[in-house]
Nucleic acid binder design. Structure first.
Lengths: 339, 339
DNA sequence: AACGCTAATCTAAACGTTTCGAATGTGTCA
DNA sequence: TGACACATTCGAAACGTTTAGATTAGCGTT
């Protein structure tokens, strides 16, 4: 900017005023300055600007795994939304590890991000302190966090699983296996409640041996399914509360020599682009990823626009059961269908 | 830092020296400073540091679509690699649009990223100028760019498709449909050459009506496949050079009442986690995503470590044909197999 | 006792902006 | 003609660091 000012024979203050439109500058100087900018190929240094202004027009986004199709989609939507608003997005993957998350949040804060969108992990770690200090607005994504009172966008997980399991019950299933991630995060907790309540509402017992948990990875789904299938009174259906884990479920079913849906019905959380292309077409609970991403972005953008004092807003969106053909009717129902 | 210095009754220079280890400071002052840092909860401001140092420990990464499973995986690997090295990653999605890409690169450069990894779009746009000015190192990912001479990591696309199409020919296929993305990017260009050469090497004619192109989206694959399947002498196999488009291919086959592989064989580029779980298990060309991401990160980290003057390095990795069961043998071969 | 050496610490300038308040010039009005 | 308002431009401080060079203190030598 100094060079531009010299070349245009004006002060840096005038150049700045022109660039920001903070004061009127005469047509003559405008002309000279613009010429100088072109000649020099000048680009305003956003770092210096950030230092002075205290704002970086950058936000931080942390998710457990970007390869989880739910997060892939949500990240994509969020990125686009902030791109439109002229913000850059720093992306971090926490790998479901609390220490990693804390470290990354610190990294982002050091870099003076204007806001944070967090699909948190563990108990939230330093998040609590950050929200309380209230210097940078935080939006919780997908997962609430006990003791952290801030904007959030989540799914009505309990209801979504309740509906899915009720659907299985209506098909005639009585023993329904349930595979969950670690229950320290709210969606897993709420989904489990949905499962139990659906059974109870139908007057069915909750058999603890049908509930298995793992650490969100394909291999965990595989192992959990293997255990369920080797039960002497094995379930006729399995619901997987996590998308990557259902891949393991399908592989286990195949490896054990069974087939879906003939021998065992399968449904899972989170839709994905391939789900209605292949056989079996998987019945899933689809999250409104577009809406989730946009709402999260909007909440944060609203705070960034200056609306700091409004009380925390919690948006709860509805899932949608995508009924395909990976679950088959049992007993009397099966006969009436096959007849 | 000023507050810390005051609280510890030292100068800011001493605090800085301690924090950076650039000079020895006495045990006594060390003690006082560390205490003050704890008391105040001081965090070093990375923006001010960046301004002074001219480095942000942040890199920019642009890809066309993060939802394309190839890019999802590569982005994930790259993010992890830079995270380990203490760098933050700014992610941008260009949506296959050159103007968007130019704008995002400018945005990243304004923010003084230390380096750039670009899966470019169109003809590269302002990339050329940036590489020539050589202020910030650039690594090309997946796609080379004419006239842009810099580090790059790409696949041997020609060879990969050559192998895949040759495999189809060995199965007895003579009319092989080919669906490509827009040919202005190097992988699409090279893959097409691989297709043509495989046919020629086998003494087969290249029938132009069997070649269709689209814009990388599912719907384009759908339309292209519909056209191929309504040819009066329709192909017995289809190779899709792009992963998202193959979803459209599968849907078109289903909608038209055919089935894969019985009526038509399908193979495509890019492997994905679901490919060996469902029916048909898709035969794909798997890219070594882990290696691609790591190599790209390493090339850039090497430049960032100071190795600026080495000539551009171009890494060409090999794809791997994952043979599953979406392609069936034809003619005499089919009989010998079914016998 | 004066000197030089080393180690520890400090002062102050710089990085590239923004912005406040002052300075300058021009035209209007009494 | 002098006072005043207004529009335009400028000088300089500030944002929070790093760092070169200056200063100081401590200590062994001669």
């Amino acid at each position: 900017m100094l060079h531009v000012a010299e070349a245009a024979r004006v002060s840096v203050a005038t150049v700045s005023a022109l660039l920001n439109g903070t004061a009127t500058v005469s047509p003559e100087l405008t002309q000279r300055i613009e010429q100088a900018i072109r000649d020099i190929g000048y680009k305003r240094n956003a770092i210096a600007r950030s230092l002075k202004m205290g704002t970086t027009r950058t936000i931080g986004l942390t998710v457990p795994h970007i390869t989880n199709p739910f997060f892939t989609d949500v990240v994509s939507v969020i990125q686009q939304a902030f791109d439109r608003a002229g913000y850059a997005v720093m992306l971090c993957c926490t790998d479901e590890d609390l220490n990693t998350q804390d470290e990354q949040i610190r990294l982002l804060l050091d870099r003076m991000v204007d806001g944070l969108i967090v699909a948190r992990v563990g108990d939230g770690g330093i998040l609590k302190g950050i929200v309380e200090d209230a210097n940078v607005p935080v939006v919780l994504l997908d997962r609430l966090c006990e003791g952290v009172d801030t904007d959030a966008v989540v799914l009505d997980n309990q209801r979504a699983v309740f509906d899915a399991v009720t659907y299985l019950i209506h098909l005639g299933h009585r023993r329904i296996g349930y595979i969950t991630g670690t229950s320290d995060i709210s969606p897993m907790h709420d989904r489990m409640i949905g499962y139990r309540e659906a059974l109870q509402a139908a007057g069915l017992p909750v058999a603890e041996e049908l509930i298995r948990s793992g650490n969100f990875h394909e291999i965990d789904g595989y192992n959990a399914t293997m255990q369920l299938l080797s039960l002497h009174d094995r379930p006729s259906a399995i619901f997987s509360a996590n998308n990557p884990m259902v891949i393991g479920t399908m592989k286990a079913i195949r490896d054990i020599g069974l087939s879906c849906p003939e021998d065992i019905s399968v449904a899972c959380f989170d839709d994905f682009p391939w789900s209605d292309v292949f056989v079996p077409q998987l019945t899933t609970v689809a999250q409104p990823v577009q809406a989730i991403g946009e709402q999260a972005a909007n909440l944060l953008l609203d705070r960034l626009a200056g609306n700091r004092d409004a009380p925390p807003r919690k948006l709860v969106l509805k899932g949608r059961l995508m009924i395909r053909n990976s679950c088959r009717p049992l007993g009397a129902l099966a006969q009436s269908v096959s007849a």
